[in-house]
Amino acid sequence: MTLKLRYFAVTCAIAFTLSVACEHRAYAYVDPGSGLLLLQSLSALFTGALFFCRKRLKSLITRSTVKETRSEANSE
């Protein structure tokens, strides 16, 4: 397992190094609104993840009350 992970890490490092070493000028224009689009996309991703995992997050924040379930069982 660690050997595969090591090969993957080395492959990613080589690919990144080659992409930086072989960089060419783009002569392109980047729209100023592109940063806001990226920010909006990241916030939507974060909000969607919170919405998807809301039950698990709620169970981490709130405590389960075992005493209430025992008192309900005794009253019936």
Rank of each mutant, 00 (worst) to 15 (best):
M1Y: 11
T2P: 06
L3P: 01
L3K: 12
L5A: 14
R6T: 12
R6M: 11
F8N: 10
F8Q: 12
F8H: 09
A9G: 08
V10D: 01
C12M: 15
C12L: 15
A13Q: 02
I14D: 03
F16L: 14
T17F: 08
L18S: 10
L18E: 10
L18F: 14
L18H: 06
S19D: 06
S19M: 08
S19H: 04
S19Y: 03
V20R: 13
V20N: 07
V20S: 08
V20A: 15
A21K: 12
E23K: 05
E23P: 00
H24G: 02
H24W: 05
H24Y: 07
H24P: 00
A26C: 05
Y27P: 00
Y27E: 10
Y27R: 05
Y27A: 06
V30C: 08
D31P: 08
D31F: 07
D31W: 13
P32R: 09
P32Q: 11
G33P: 00
G33M: 12
S34Y: 05
S34M: 12
S34D: 13
G35F: 03
L36H: 03
L36Q: 04
L36A: 04
L37F: 12
L38M: 15
L39I: 02
L42P: 01
S43K: 10
L45I: 14
F46P: 00
F46Y: 15
T47W: 11
G48F: 05
G48Q: 02
G48N: 06
L50R: 11
F51W: 09
F51H: 09
F51Q: 10
F52E: 04
R54D: 01
K55V: 04
K55T: 06
R56Q: 11
K58Y: 07
S59D: 12
S59V: 01
S59F: 03
I61N: 01
T62Y: 08
T62Q: 02
S64N: 03
T65I: 09
T65M: 04
K67L: 11
E68K: 08
T69S: 00
T69E: 00
R70V: 12
N74Y: 02
